[in-house]
Design a protein around this nucleic acid. Structure first.
Length: 278
DNA sequence: CGCGTCGCCTGTGGGC
DNA sequence: TGCCCACAGGCGACGC
């Protein structure tokens, strides 16, 4: 569930909490959490003794730069959490798959019940060989982009808006929740084709995109009822109270009071207002 | 190539 | 009270 805003909140927390720390020991439970590595030893060996020098985010990927030029890449998938433990002896939660213990004490723990998330180490200069990261599209928080540029990107494609917004190669960071929210705010239907937007609609979409993401970061992300997303300290976000359509089937639309609709496509839900989104 | 669907995975909750 | 199953969805794979 973590999308761009949640990952950005975690990145900021990590920047403050783990940059400058040296990894003393690495423990791996579930092999699936580091499935790109041949074995645990391989993963552990690349991390022990290394210092974390920088923390970046690209879309939903977190990149920990290490002092030897390697990068620890983390993707939280659907249910992944990074949790900071100041005391190593603090109780370890179920589904904790990777634990980094720092020389100065304390730990960073990767927990992920549904195991869609993963961690892997990429050698210096090796990121081009990781297509999921290398081929990521524009990051709406990092890349300064004019709405005119965005419009040109949209017209270059002739596909439905929602799948396009969620296409990580086109735009990095949006998932199901924020794409629905952005489209509602922009007043655009999920199945509108990207090459049919007027100048005004392009501007509305771009503005809705930037505003929604900035707002969500400001409120420290969206934590749904399942408590799937929490920050480094284990605290839930507060943007769920600001969602206008996601999870609001049947509730009156904020704009026109007609009920919010839910449509299922391929097992996924799309929430929208039939009247306000055209 | 675009697009829809499926499988991976576990916790939760509604229905019976 | 307990069992079953739908549901949650990021993302790669696959088929048309």
């Amino acid at each position: 569930m973590p999308e761009l805003p949640e990952v950005e909140v975690i990145r900021r927390d990590l920047e403050r909490e783990v940059v400058g720390r040296k990894i003393k020991k690495v423990d791996v439970g579930e092999m699936r959490a580091i499935r790109r590595h041949p074995n645990k030893k391989h993963f552990i060996g690349q991390l022990e003794g290394r210092k974390i020098t920088r923390l970046e985010r690209r879309g939903k990927y977190l990149l920990f730069t290490l002092d030897d030029g390697q990068t620890l890449v983390t993707h939280l998938g659907m249910s992944g959490q990074l949790l900071r433990a100041t005391q190593s002896r603090a109780a370890v939660q179920k589904h904790t798959h990777v634990v980094l213990t720092f020389t100065q004490g304390g730990q960073l723990r990767f927990r992920d019940p549904r195991t869609f998330g993963e961690m892997f180490v990429v050698e210096d200069g090796g990121m081009d060989a990781v297509p999921e990261v290398a081929e990521l599209g524009v990051d709406p928080l990092e890349t300064p982009l004019s709405w005119e540029d965005f419009g040109r990107m949209l017209t270059a494609r002739k596909v439905k808006l929602k799948p396009l917004l969620m296409d990580q190669k086109f735009l990095a960071g949006l998932g199901n929740i924020y794409s629905d929210e952005v489209l509602f705010t922009a007043g655009l239907a999920h199945d509108r084709h990207s090459d049919t937007l007027s100048t005004q609609e392009v501007r509305r979409l771009y503005r809705a995109l930037v505003e929604t993401i900035q707002d969500a970061v400001k409120y420290r992300g969206t934590t749904l009822d399942d408590n799937g997303y929490v920050d480094l300290g284990g605290t839930p976000g507060e943007f769920q109270g600001h969602l206008r359509v996601y999870g609001h089937e049947g509730d009156p639309c904020r704009r026109c009071r007609r009920p919010i609709m839910r449509r299922k496509t391929g097992g996924r839900s799309t929430y929208f207002c039939e009247a306000c989104q055209v």
